[in-house]
Computed example of a mutant assay.
Amino acid sequence: MNAAAGNDGMVRRVVVVTGASGGVGRATARMLAGPGTAVALLARGASGLRAAADEVEAAGGRALPIETDMADFAQVEAAGRRVADELGPIDVWINNAFSSVFAPFQDISPAEFRRVTEVTYLGYVHGTRVALDHMAPRDRGTIVQVGSALAYRSIPLQSAYCGAKHAIVGFTESLRCELRHDRSNVRVTTVHLPAVNTPQFDWLLSRLPRPAQPVPPIYQPEVAARAIIAAADRPNRREYWVGAPTMLTILANRLVPGLLDRYLARTGYQAQQTDRPTDPHRPTNLWRPADGPGQPDHGAHGAFDDRSHPHSSQAWLSRHRRLALAVGGAGAALGVYAFRRR
């Protein structure tokens, strides 16, 4: 059996990343890579997978690219078997693959809506099932569901995607209860992301009059990748919220959902479109990959580098809560001491 080994020859961990050919999945796979880590890369796009595998190998990791349509359970199951056979037992499975359509609901055909649901929701169900098939017998492993602020607060023009992300939350909460009932040591955690600068806005099917864009503020995919890796390392937390916009959106929806309905009805259409004209020849990846054989590799970043934040203070504080609380407590104690000395 081939496996990744560190400089000391010891096998460390095997990680599966779905949607690994571009965007957040690509950035996560690249950041995970290093001596002692084997990364299985699951996606449909051959050129993107090949480039992602090169990045993992260049960082000292072992890469196993597998062309996989996450909507097809048989393909996902076969990929899981291949990972176990070629790399060893799966330690971490990161569900990230998705697709979507930018359009008002009535402009999305039933077949398109079904396809988004099969990739974005059932893809997570399939990945989770295969991960558990490998992890449960060993009573060990971590599953990370990459979610979104839109899993709690839907926005216009993304009904299929928002519906799928909401469904992932419901499915994951049910599964978490079952694992706790079984006293399983397999852990499941979710990372909810803000708007991220990924190639999705260049290749998702869109019927908008102008090119789609993420709703600002926008973050670079590495911000998301750092949070995902932290969640994989510390999966005992149920959820991670990445970025202040995610935190504020989820909390505001709990408090004033009707107000957000009105606000998004007024601003949501324009906020998700650029001022440029639409390219009629742009690729779309709903039915086939936009980075397939003979097509260009799109990488991790989208077209909004000049408007994207490379860091998030909120995300850093979320990953280092104990340190933040300690510093805050020390600051408060010093404040009280100074006040008493006056």
Rank of each mutant, 00 (worst) to 15 (best):
S21D: 06
S21E: 09
G23I: 03
V24K: 01
G25N: 01
R26N: 13
R26C: 00
R26V: 00
A27S: 11
A27K: 07
A29K: 09
A29W: 06
M31Q: 15
L32T: 10
G34P: 02
T37C: 10
A38K: 01
A38F: 05
A38M: 09
A38R: 03
A38E: 00
A40G: 05
A40D: 08
L41I: 05
L41G: 02
L42N: 04
A43M: 06
A43N: 06
R44T: 10
A46D: 13
A46P: 02
A46V: 14
S47F: 03
G48N: 08
L49N: 01
R50P: 03
R50D: 15
R50G: 04
A51G: 07
A53I: 06
D54H: 13
E55W: 02
E55P: 07
V56N: 05
E57D: 14
A59L: 04
A59G: 11
A59K: 10
G61K: 07
R62Y: 11
L64P: 01
P65G: 08
E67P: 02
T68V: 14
T68L: 12
D69R: 03
D69N: 13
M70E: 14
A71M: 03
D72L: 12
F73V: 03
Q75M: 13
V76E: 13
V76D: 08
E77H: 05
A78S: 13
A79S: 12
R81E: 15
R82M: 14
R82P: 03
R82G: 05
V83N: 06
D85H: 15
I90G: 01
I90M: 00
I90E: 00
I94Y: 10
N95I: 04
N96G: 08
A97K: 03
A97Q: 06
F98T: 00
F98V: 02
S99L: 08
S100M: 14
V101Q: 06
V101C: 00
V101G: 00
F102Y: 15
A103M: 07
A103L: 02
F105T: 15
F105Q: 08
Q106Y: 13
Q106T: 13
D107E: 15
I108V: 14
E112C: 04
F113E: 06
R115Y: 02
V116G: 00
T117K: 11
T117M: 11
E118K: 09
E118M: 08
E118L: 09
L122K: 04
G123C: 10
Y124G: 04
Y124A: 02
V125R: 05
V125W: 14
H126E: 12
H126M: 07
H126L: 10
G127D: 12
R129M: 13
R129P: 02
R129I: 02
R129L: 09
R129A: 12
V130E: 05
A131R: 14
A131P: 00
L132H: 12
H134D: 05
M135S: 04
M135L: 10
A136T: 12
A136W: 03
P137D: 06
P137G: 11
R138I: 12
R138S: 08
D139G: 13
D139P: 05
D139I: 09
R140N: 03
R140S: 15
R140T: 06
